[in-house]
Design a protein around this nucleic acid. Structure first.
Length: 150
DNA sequence: GCCAACGTTGGC
DNA sequence: GCCAACGTTGGC
């Protein structure tokens, strides 16, 4: 099982939205590096759900990949904010995965706290602040889970 | 709302 | 292929 971190703005799609839907498509990714990570995801992989553009920005819960990468239909929809006129149906440029809600952590781990934890200084979250889908090492994963226990 | 960081586009 | 212009992300 690989572990990941996935960002979403809670005003748009929060972990509570996912908890209500139980399973949802993770669409709208429009960055090649993030897409390439999406394509590496396998059924059963788990991810930290991160609230970006939030108060405070923080890791708030855990989700599971339940459907591996397949074409994101919003890229073909002119009415969508994520419409990509350059993407062709014969060769879709953008993929999505489906994710399942697992839990909201007993306590959040804010970006500010992460910055102060020596064991988490190499997280891509700190090094590549704009990357919305990123791998998390087993060491980081285990450390974070201990920190957010109920 | 501002703006720094940084990814993408497109002219040359 | 370089790089300036532009657009977006996301913290503050």
């Amino acid at each position: 099982m690989r572990t990941w971190l996935m960002k979403s703005e809670p005003d748009v799609f929060s972990i509570l939205h996912l908890a209500a839907q139980h399973v949802a498509g993770w669409d709208g990714v429009r960055n090649y590096q993030a897409r390439n990570f999406l394509r590496m995801m396998r059924k059963g992989d788990r991810a930290l759900f991160y609230h970006s553009n939030a108060h405070p920005p923080a890791i708030v819960g855990m989700i599971e990949i339940v459907q591996e990468a397949y074409p994101d239909s919003t890229q073909f929809d002119p009415a969508s904010d994520h419409f990509d006129p350059a993407s062709k149906r014969e060769a879709p440029r953008w993929d999505q995965v489906d994710v399942k809600f697992l839990k909201v952590f007993g306590r959040e781990l804010s970006l500010e706290e992460i910055r102060q934890i020596p064991q988490l200084q190499n997280m891509l979250l700190l090094k590549r602040p704009r990357l919305s889908i990123q791998p998390v090492t087993p060491e980081e994963w285990n450390f974070i889970l201990k920190r957010v226990q109920d």
